[in-house]
Write a protein that binds this DNA or RNA. Structure first.
Lengths: 203, 203, 203, 203
DNA sequence: AGATAATCGAGACGGTACGTCCCGTCTTCCA
DNA sequence: TGGAAGACGGGACGTACCGTCTCGATTATCT
């Protein structure tokens, strides 16, 4: 993410509507609620946690929560997004194997860390809520995809990969296998998966 | 499960308990309920569907549902097992490219057909509901995976693929990319994806 | 009320709808809820009492209350109606003064007793809820009015009252003055009001 | 309230506190709020109306309302006092029948006119909200009652009515019957009721 | 054939969370 | 400083499902 884009706005929180008059919403309240939500998510799980309970734990009224988030999903996503940054950075050193391995290891750390729950939630809801998928796409995935594509394209141009390489496909194979395995195994991942992927497809 | 077992029992449904006397449970009822459950799962999603709604849609009383299944997950697992037949068959003709292309095309048809929504739902929910994932695994995925693995192993043995091939990884790359794209694109798939996968990874 | 008319049905409670199947509603539950409602009405007052609180006090779920009564008014009316009988009886001994005095004294006792609250509630809501007014009319008022009219008519026929008496008007003057005073004084009544009314208008 | 007091102050409204500096409270605001309150009272009833709704309808902030009135009752009382003019005048021409008939006809017009709904609401709510009753009493009823009493007393002194007349009772019988019928009939009144009352009780 | 017993649809039951509304207080900015 | 706007903690509203339970009415099987 380029430094010129602040983009620190909540992804999902309701707009306050440019409200000119009136008492502004308290950032403090917001932070306390998000913290309570995160705590509830971790200790109780998504299904069991309750908006009512989150509000109570934050010492807030229910209306104060509903004023900002329409539903549990939005609340949870913001709660995670607040504390979290899926910042798997992609650098291009000219060594496609090393670069891809480095990126996949970061992705592995992200999936296994607290962000795994975020990804799971996203995956679970994106088919039913296209808007959510788009938000995720716009905020995170599209940039990663573009970077990976460039990485592969330049490797092909360099001759490090065959000239007839299907660039889009090869750029996607890393994340696809990582996520597929992650889902398949119910949130776990083999330690050496990044290495194996690189060895099989990029060397 | 011993191989001699006919395996026509429900995976999860409660035992009727050898009921000596009394009116036996109606298979008819059971099928109607499972059909209604499946419909609800696909149209509403796991979280939104209600047992009460399934019972009503099946013209059954709530007790008739609870008598057979303790909770929503058990019901849904049985519903899927009963009705679903993702019969992407895997044959081994000795031509790994052709065999893989044939399988992926079948998978593509499945994903885009009526079972696609079901599969997507399943994929989406499995991270949040491990029991669902396990059931799906046991019932469908593990067999496919084993077949694909054998296919790839024999191609390696034949010398059609390099000797240092990561068999597990290569066996998984096809489904992984197909499903990843499917979820990514919100239920659509490029027509030529199977061909591109085969060309890139199996030729 | 003639003995041939059982009329012990709830005035306001929702119909169970002739429900052929299903578990029947428990009379026991109903009685406990009504008792709790009456207690709440007396101790907290109409405005302050809460359906939620009544349900809790009765050890019942909210749905069990709402299944039977749509709103607080209906609940309270039934609660009062259960325990109470506005049974100011009207007898015709041939002495209009004595009979009227006897009736008005009973009415006085009713107004000052626990039924006063009932009347107050009825009066307060009847203009806004015509259905309520009709129910009260049908169940209580119309019969009283007819009796009083007959009482006065026979006194006129007997010559105990002038021949040009406006029977409807004179029949209504007792209750009108009693209730008017009752409302005017905020739920209190002069002890000797029945006597004064009889002395002024019926002797 | 001392007789020298100009009495143009609100009965219940909070004191502005001699506001030394700052912007003075707008009389305009006050009138608009009271008008909105009156409208809400008549159309929705005391219980259903909300201060929030009144403020919104008046285009005022909630604080602007609460700054002047502590609660709904105070607001409503002022609203009525501000706008209502039940100006049934009572004159004493020496003919008790004619005077009473004239007054009752004015009362009839009032009840059937736009103020009728207000009066009805008031009568309906006074039993449940004694403060409302007192306000109404102080502001309207007590004066009328005194006038009517004087009217009757002088008729008795004149010999136009029997010497043993119960003056209070007879003074009250007109309004009592009118209002009782009005409430009983859900806001309607027989055209000839004033005439019949006078003929029966004052001639 | 009759008794026995578990089934069936229906729906009431005590609960719990939902999302909305209003309370009365407060905080902010504008005039 | 008054006023419009509206956020705040609180709490009741009426609804929807949960999973359990009762009800009368069907079925089968076992005497």
């Amino acid at each position: 993410m380029t430094p010129s884009a602040p983009a620190e706005m909540s992804t999902v929180a309701l707009d306050a509507g440019l409200a000119r008059g009136g008492r502004p919403r308290s950032k403090e309240r917001e932070r306390e609620i998000l913290a309570a939500a995160l705590h509830a998510l971790v200790t109780e799980g998504f299904d069991a946690m309750t908006i009512e309970g989150v509000a109570a734990a934050a010492g807030a009224g229910k209306a104060t929560v509903y004023r900002r988030w329409h539903n549990k999903i939005d609340l949870v996503i913001d709660a995670i997004g607040e504390q979290v940054a899926l910042r798997a950075e992609i650098v291009d050193t000219g060594d496609i194997g090393a670069d891809m391995r480095s990126y996949l290891r970061q992705l592995q750390r992200d999936l296994l860390g607290p962000n795994g729950a975020l990804l799971a939630t996203f995956m679970a809801e994106r088919l039913r809520h296209p808007a959510l998928a788009e938000a995720f796409e716009a905020q995170y995935a599209s940039e990663k995809r573009a970077c990976l594509r460039k990485l592969v394209r330049r490797a092909v141009e360099r001759g490090a990969l065959p000239a007839d390489t299907d660039i889009d496909l090869l750029a996607g194979v890393g994340p696809a296998l990582m996520v597929y395995e992650f889902v398949q195994r119910g949130g776990r991942l083999p330690r050496d998966l990044p290495d194996r992927i690189v060895r099989q497809f990029f060397e």
